[in-house]
Amino acid sequence: MSAAIDIRDRGGPAQPLLTVDKLIKHFPIKKGLGGKKAVVRAVDGVDFEILKGETLGIVGESGCGKSTTAKLIMGLIEHDSGQLLFDGEKIGSRALPMRSFRAQTQMVFQDSYSSLNPRMTVEASIAFGPQVHGVPKRQAIERARSLLARVGLEPTRFAARYPHELSGGQRQRVNIARALALEPRLVVLDEAVSALDKSVEAQVLNLLLDLKQDFNLTYLFISHDLNVVRFICDRVAVMYLGQVVEIGPADTVLASPSHPYTAALLSSMPSLDPDNRTEVAPLAGDPPNPIDPPSGCRFHPRCSLMEPVCPANVPPLDGVGELHRVACLARQPGSGHSLAPAQQVAA
């Protein structure tokens, strides 16, 4: 695949590659000794779009629903409700069956070792996907060797090795090569560099940027490291307790966040400057229980801007700037919050 126009592009460059609309996934559980039925609201109405050729980052605390959202997109688990569109077509429909979608969308997982079959060589792991999708064995092996070279692993040295014979960084390069073997359009990277040491992480991040350019890729990049997100992402979505609370250009969101939770995440980042040390905890308390989330704004029990209007009203994800949306009553005109901007009156 080259950086030229992709013949699979049905809607042109203006149409989002992936649209996630009101996506919901609740996991049923039994609560307490009596076995009372309840649900964990892992993903509870997630909305965002990924534009063609961009890298969208998803950040948030552990348990906010980042990885579950990725698995729902990939069809690894079934969603309860909501809609997933890929290039304007509903995923799993007659126009875009799941097999066709998975040929265009691949995923790189966090654990580089458990992602690979320990009984298969590196070459066989990369060539397996194309063979399943009808590529002749010899052509699939040639593609695997070419991709190994592209991700910085000499085929003559690494093709016949097994996963246990590689380092963590080398295994993740193999996983990236395997994801590219089907010539996808969208690659979902779920904490793909978080298990690597910093020097290897930098190499893999630079590799991902080069591959994006060379193969005309679109990335969904899930991470808890805001420095990595700032480096690689064009836009960023912030999730809290199963919902997107802020989304916008990475430079805007990470430089001047509009949501108090985003600001708290940024203030929790360690600094090498001794004059800029964090002396006060940016957030108080633990994340609320996803089985019984707070009413209204789910962040209000931990928010310094909380007012009586916050637990009484659910804030919509509204625009506060160009391509910048936030779910906070303190940022929305006419919400009733004392810090809300004045509502403009039509002339």
Rank of each mutant, 00 (worst) to 15 (best):
L96A: 07
H300A: 06
L72D: 09
G336C: 04
L96T: 06
D214S: 14
P28M: 04
Q343E: 14
L116W: 02
P311H: 05
R102E: 10
P184G: 10
P288Q: 04
D87F: 09
N206K: 04
E165S: 05
M120Y: 03
G336K: 08
P290L: 14
M1T: 13
G168E: 10
H300F: 14
V174L: 02
A14T: 11
G319V: 13
L33T: 14
D197I: 14
G248H: 00
G34D: 08
V132L: 11
R102I: 11
K31D: 15
R298Q: 11
V151A: 04
S268L: 01
P28T: 05
L182G: 01
S256M: 08
V204T: 06
L266K: 03
R161E: 01
F215D: 02
F221S: 03
D111Y: 01
V193W: 00
I232Y: 02
S62P: 12
K71W: 13
I232W: 00
S125M: 04
K212W: 09
N276V: 14
V280P: 02
Q213M: 11
Q139Y: 04
G12F: 11
S335W: 01
H300N: 08
A237H: 05
R173V: 04
G45C: 15
Q110L: 09
P294C: 08
Q213W: 09
E54R: 15
H324S: 05
M98H: 00
C303S: 07
F27H: 12
P16L: 05
V204A: 09
L51E: 11
P249E: 02
R277H: 15
S194Y: 08
Q104A: 13
P97L: 01
P315K: 01
I50C: 11
A195D: 02
L339W: 15
H337V: 09
G82L: 12
S304F: 11
P118E: 05
V244K: 03
N216S: 11
T278S: 14
T278M: 12
L189V: 09
G82R: 06
Y113W: 05
A284F: 10
S125Q: 11
A70V: 10
V135N: 01
V122S: 02
D9M: 15
L196D: 04
S93K: 00
P316W: 00
C297H: 07
L147Q: 07
P341Y: 15
A255H: 08
R235M: 07
P274I: 10
M1L: 10
I247N: 00
V39E: 14
V245D: 00
A237S: 05
P315A: 04
Q332P: 01
S338T: 15
I291L: 09
